[in-house]
Design a protein around this nucleic acid. Structure first.
Lengths: 195, 195
DNA sequence: CCAATTATTTAACATTTGTTAAACAGCTTA
DNA sequence: TAAGCTGTTTAACAAATGTTAAATAATTGG
């Protein structure tokens, strides 16, 4: 039934923990594959996030409605996990929205099934811990940059780290991600040395 | 031997997971108590962070040397965990320094012992996961604020969330934490409505 | 291919924050 | 008590980013 190609997911996982084929197979019956068109919503505002997505194809973004304006707080790299984590963790309605920047193919795992894995496979709980640790370190790095660097430096870092996004992700979202206005990013790009 | 009062730590833990007295007791033989004087260093730059601290008394800060200047990236609230997490996770030398803002009493757990707990008590691994999840959500919230709010709003939020720090933590560190210069915070305070 | 929409740029001006330098206030301790 | 710290404030000017509004460019759907 589920003879899909999960190579990307498997490669993602083994960067965190040694996982046999058997360890991995535990998740397969629970994985659901969905496709989103550009602009479609994965987690809506006010909805309780009860599933997590692995981006097998395409880019998601996390945004917040702030004074009637959408502010993108995060962009999900290819081949990584995304959900509205505060809602996923607390099971309260999400104030974050997750939607597709490009057409996406997602592997979906429900919270219920994830907890089943956590309960029955300590290795999966360890994997979960390691992934979230890594996400936290990333978030810290980003905070460091907000505190110590100019928008231009943050932009350069973004380009270096996610070169593929340059072509797929509109500048508006990147500007939001950097914490500046689109017009400021545009100005900054104009004045930048492009070595 | 270890007849210390661990109430604060226990109270911290049960906010995350149901823990019996027995579950908790597993950690006690591993806990070491240290006291730091104001200004003393817990994790030095270049050192591999191989232990984690629970702040039973006092405040720690995480800072980075940036162009020869100390920039405080984080302030550890009372009764919570702190370490140089990137180094703790990767076991590479830390570029972050952790030092005492005030006199501190810390409960120390080595990485080695923590992993022993993780290996032998799935409940402890679950606790670890839940704590880090929470830290991640906090970091996201702070990122949201950098992206959507002015420094004044961030300062108001800080005061509301950590009212006790106002009297214990110098403004320089708070300014850093907010991502602005001390002088800017001072100006902002002058112009603020203090309702 | 055209019209409509979306994405990006530009520019003038406003606001916020940074920079530099100095003054001031409160402690500590010789 | 005086001298030297550390922490905080002030002020003038500079730089970065925001705001508003419009023009231009690129993309999409009929």
């Amino acid at each position: 039934m589920n003879s899909h190609n999960f190579t990307n997911l498997q490669e993602f996982i083994v960067r965190y923990i040694e996982f046999s084929e058997t360890d991995f197979r535990a998740v397969i019956p629970y994985l659901q594959i969905i496709r989103l068109k550009k602009g479609e919503v994965f987690i809506a505002e006010g909805e309780v996030a009860n599933r997590i997505a692995f981006t097998n194809k395409g880019y998601l973004r996390v945004f917040i409605n702030h004074d009637g304006e959408e502010i993108t707080r995060d962009i999900t790299p290819l081949h990584s996990f995304a959900t509205a984590l505060p809602s996923f963790i607390t099971q309260e309605p999400s104030c974050e929205v997750i939607s597709a920047i490009t057409d996406c193919e997602l592997f979906i795992l429900s919270k219920q099934h994830l907890e089943l894995l956590y309960d029955n496979y300590p290795k999966w709980e360890r994997l979960g811990r390691r992934i979230i640790e890594d996400m936290f370190v990333d978030a810290q790095l980003r905070l460091n940059q907000f505190i110590t660097q100019t928008a231009e430096v943050r932009y350069r870092y973004f380009l270096k780290r996610y070169p593929d996004m340059m072509h797929e992700v509109p500048l508006k979202y990147i500007a939001d991600y950097l914490g500046i206005k689109l017009q400021s990013l545009s100005r900054l790009r104009k004045n930048m040395e492009w070595y």
